[in-house]
Design a protein around this nucleic acid. Structure first.
Lengths: 181, 181
DNA sequence: TTAATATTGTTGACGCGTCAAGCATATTTC
DNA sequence: GAAATATGCTTGACGCGTCAACAATATTAA
C-alpha cells in the first residue's frame, strides 16, 4: 500500500471512557426515570420540562424548551400536551409573536415540580455525584460544556420573545451566515 | 414544622455537571448516529452491536449483548433481526444450552464493521475526546466506571456459555439473594 | 404593497425499543 | 423421576419521540 489512510484508533482508556459514558448514561437515566415514575408518576423527560419551566420562572416558549432539553418541536408539543392534560401546565399564546406558544406552570405544576424535585436531586446525588470530589466535578462540567458547545457551535438558540425575565433583550448581531445544523 | 426533611439541593456546579451530562450525551449520540447513517446506513445502536460482536471475536449470545449495550432482551431480538436481514450476521443455537442463541458476524458483517468503525472512531475523537488531556481522561473513565458499577452493584452478568473465548468458566458463587433491579 | 422566504407549532405516519405474556429449555427441590 | 422454579428468546401491544408535510404568522426583498 502506498499510503495508509488515517485509520484512527482509540486507546484503551479512550475506548473505556466512551463506552463508560454511554453505559453510565443509559443506566442512570433509566433508573432515575423509574424512580420518578414510581414516586410521582412522571417520566424523566416530563420532569425535565417542569424543571426548566420552574427555573425560568414558570413559563417558556415551545421552541426554547425544545432547545433546552434537546428535543424536536414535535416531541415538545407531545410532552407538553401530556403535561397539560395532567393539569400541570397551560398553553398561552405570545402577544408579540402570533406564532409563539408559552407553556405555563399551573399551581399543580409547581407542586408536582417540588415533589419530584426532591426525589430527582436525591437520585442524582446517589447515582451520579456520589464520591465525586470538587476538583473532579470541575473537570467533568468543563468536559461536558465543551461537548455541548462544540456540537452547538454553529447554532443560535431560539428567541424567547416576551419571556418573564426579558430585560429589554435585543437580538444579537446575527452571526455570519445561518444555522445549518 | 418540627423537622425539615433532608431537602436536598444541588450546588451550581453539580447542577451544571448533571445537565451537561444529559445534553452532551443527547447531542453527541444524535450526531454520531446521523453520521453513521449517512455514511453506512447504520444506526448507532446497530453499529454498537456489530462492534461488541467484533470485539468478542465474532459471536456472542443474545443475553450477553443485551447486558453489554444496556438493552432489553426484546430490543436485542429486534436489532439482531434487522442486522440479520441486512446480511451482517446469522443466528446459531448454542450446543450446550438449548435456549441460547448466538449472533454470529458474517463476512459482510465484518466488512461493515470495519467501514463503520473508521467513521465512528473519527466521530468519537472529534465530538467526544477532542482537547481532553490524559489526566482528565483518567478522571472521566473512573467516574463513568463508578456510575456503571454502582447501578449494577447487585447484578450478575448473564452466562455466555460456549463462547469463543470461554476458558473453562465456572459460575461464581451466587450472591446473597437475587438481583431485583 | 406584494411576493418570496423563514420560523413556529401541530399532526399523521412511522421507527425504535420496552413491557408482559408465552413457549422452550435448564436447574433445583422433593 | 416429577414438579416447581428460573432462565433465554421471541412476539403483540404499546409508549415515546422523530420526520415530513402543513397552516399560520413574521420577516425580507422587489
Amino acid at each position: 500500500m502506498t499510503k495508509t489512510p488515517p485509520l484512527p484508533k482509540l486507546s484503551e482508556r479512550e475506548g473505556a471512557a466512551w463506552v463508560g459514558f454511554l453505559r453510565a448514561h443509559d443506566l442512570v437515566t433509566q433508573r432515575l426515570d423509574a424512580e420518578l415514575r414510581a414516586s410521582n408518576d412522571l417520566a424523566l423527560s416530563e420532569f425535565e420540562i417542569l424543571l426548566h419551566l420552574a427555573r425560568a420562572g414558570g413559563e417558556k416558549r415551545m421552541a426554547q424548551i425544545a432547545h433546552d432539553v434537546v428535543l424536536t418541536g414535535g416531541g415538545v408539543t407531545r410532552i407538553v400536551a401530556r403535561l397539560e392534560k395532567l393539569g400541570y401546565l397551560t398553553r398561552r399564546s405570545c402577544p408579540k409573536d402570533g406564532r409563539g406558544i408559552f407553556a405555563v406552570l399551573t399551581n399543580a405544576g409547581w407542586a408536582k415540580h417540588r415533589a419530584a424535585h426532591a426525589v430527582h436531586v436525591e437520585g442524582v446525588k446517589r447515582l451520579f455525584l456520589r464520591d465525586t470530589k470538587q476538583d473532579e466535578l470541575a473537570v467533568l462540567s468543563a468536559f461536558f460544556d465543551r461537548m455541548v458547545a462544540r456540537t452547538r457551535a454553529k447554532e443560535q438558540g431560539p428567541d424567547n420573545a416576551c419571556a418573564l425575565d426579558e430585560p429589554t433583550k435585543k437580538r444579537e448581531a446575527k452571526s455570519t451566515h445561518a444555522t445549518r445544523g
